[in-house]
Simulated assay, not measured.
Amino acid sequence: MKTVLVLVESVNEYLPILEDNGFRLILAPTPATRADAVATRGHEIDAVLTRGPLGVTAAEMAALPRLGIICVLGAGYEQVDLPAAKARGITVTNGAGVNAPSVADHAMALLLSAVRDIPQADASVRRSEWRKITRPSFANKRIGILGLGAVGMAIARRALGFDMQVSYHSRSPRDDVDFTYCATPLALAAESDFLIVATPGGGATRHLIDKATIEALGPQGFLVNIARASVVDTQALIDALQHGRLAGAALDVFDDEPQVPNALKTLGNVVLTPHVAGLSPQASSDTVQRVADNLLAFYAGKPVLTPVHS
């Protein structure tokens, strides 16, 4: 029986999927239990289940002599030391695309909430104020999507249902879509009323949305981030929101989770959620099933389903 070190904390209800497939689990969802498991039970561990922000370090890999595979729960794998994994011959997989419907739903919910002022309107009714403010509609608005992977495509399909015009930026144009390609994030922002961040995190995408890009989106523009906080310059975003150079923002991700800057909490033109875009019963079940399928393939000597290439 293979033993999996589980570092994630968000899918406990679905971990029996792994046990039903014959895997033994060591649960270590906190820094303390993680360090203890690596130090005292490292010789037992064959596989690791983690998330992008939790990662796996080179030192941890070195302390796990039996480690053969690292499974990342979501699409992002920014804190997994890929060079160290490659040097050790450790396979890395992710959950790319599995929770895309849930993330896309949440992105649209955030956009609707921010643009239509839903949280403030709800609060006003609860205070018996009956606050009525005219807000933008969605038909014929220009939506820009940064990153047209599985999540970005799912967002684009939903945006079409709202009669929006879709543009995108990614590392290279796609020849299988009719959406407008913009060569840079700056160009995408300049062509957008609403900008959705749906690109992976990591060094290659750090601060793609910088001060200039936020300024290009403009005082009537809205920004939604359901990807990684590192893609957006948070201080530039806060400054633009505070001074009316951006109409609003909706964020599901933050630089130092679960810490959220007080400046964001006090702004009335921001909607905040606690990194829950990818969480739904179906998404969580499917994501853990993808982990099980990757593990079963790996230990059967077959190609894994969703490999991460360093």
Rank of each mutant, 00 (worst) to 15 (best):
residue 151 V to E: 00
residue 219 P to L: 07
residue 289 Q to M: 11
residue 161 G to P: 01
residue 42 G to A: 15
residue 283 A to T: 01
residue 195 L to V: 03
residue 117 D to R: 12
residue 162 F to R: 05
residue 201 G to I: 13
residue 168 Y to T: 03
residue 162 F to D: 05
residue 51 R to C: 10
residue 246 L to A: 08
residue 309 H to A: 10
residue 137 S to I: 05
residue 16 P to Y: 01
residue 44 E to P: 08
residue 107 A to E: 04
residue 49 L to K: 14
residue 172 S to K: 13
residue 130 W to D: 07
residue 245 R to V: 05
residue 148 L to M: 11
residue 145 I to Y: 00
residue 294 N to R: 07
residue 309 H to K: 15
residue 132 K to Y: 07
residue 147 G to Y: 13
residue 84 A to Y: 03
residue 130 W to G: 03
residue 26 I to S: 03
residue 199 T to H: 10
residue 82 L to Q: 04
residue 286 D to E: 08
residue 296 L to M: 11
residue 69 I to W: 06
residue 89 G to A: 06
residue 9 E to N: 14
residue 7 L to N: 10
residue 88 R to A: 06
residue 285 S to T: 12
residue 35 A to N: 10
residue 28 A to C: 09
residue 155 I to H: 10
residue 224 V to M: 06
residue 97 G to Q: 04
residue 210 D to A: 11
residue 167 S to P: 01
residue 295 L to D: 11
residue 289 Q to R: 13
residue 217 L to R: 07
residue 147 G to N: 13
residue 250 A to W: 02
residue 287 T to D: 00
residue 255 D to H: 09
residue 121 A to F: 13
residue 176 D to S: 02
residue 92 V to I: 02
residue 269 N to E: 14
residue 10 S to A: 08
residue 307 P to A: 12
residue 196 I to E: 07
residue 68 G to A: 02
residue 59 A to T: 10
residue 268 G to K: 12
residue 186 L to Y: 06
residue 310 S to V: 04
residue 109 A to V: 01
residue 136 P to R: 06
residue 152 G to T: 09
residue 134 T to Y: 11
residue 238 I to G: 03
residue 131 R to S: 14
residue 1 M to V: 12
residue 28 A to R: 15
residue 169 H to G: 05
residue 131 R to N: 13
residue 117 D to A: 02
residue 100 A to L: 05
residue 134 T to N: 15
residue 278 G to Y: 08
residue 227 A to I: 00
residue 46 D to N: 14
residue 274 P to G: 08
residue 222 F to T: 15
residue 162 F to W: 14
residue 297 A to S: 14
residue 108 M to Q: 10
residue 251 L to D: 02
residue 17 I to T: 11
residue 111 L to W: 04
residue 47 A to R: 03
residue 229 A to P: 02
residue 150 A to E: 07
residue 215 E to M: 14
residue 295 L to T: 00
residue 102 S to L: 02
residue 301 G to H: 12
residue 310 S to I: 09
residue 227 A to H: 08
residue 185 P to M: 06
residue 297 A to D: 13
residue 86 K to D: 11
residue 153 M to F: 09
residue 161 G to Y: 10
residue 194 F to M: 15
residue 90 I to C: 02
residue 249 A to H: 04
residue 27 L to D: 09
residue 21 N to E: 09
residue 284 S to Q: 12
residue 180 T to P: 00
residue 195 L to H: 10
residue 282 Q to C: 02
residue 221 G to M: 09
residue 44 E to S: 14
residue 66 R to D: 03
residue 198 A to F: 03
residue 227 A to M: 06
residue 13 E to G: 04
residue 167 S to A: 12
residue 1 M to Q: 03
residue 259 Q to T: 04
residue 217 L to G: 00
residue 53 P to V: 09
residue 270 V to F: 14
residue 38 V to C: 11
residue 272 L to V: 04
residue 119 P to A: 09
residue 267 L to K: 08
residue 300 A to Y: 01
residue 213 T to I: 08
residue 93 T to S: 13
residue 285 S to K: 01
residue 241 L to N: 07
residue 198 A to H: 04
residue 217 L to W: 08
residue 64 L to M: 13
residue 252 D to R: 15
residue 111 L to A: 06
residue 20 D to A: 12
residue 276 V to N: 14
residue 74 G to D: 00
residue 110 L to T: 11
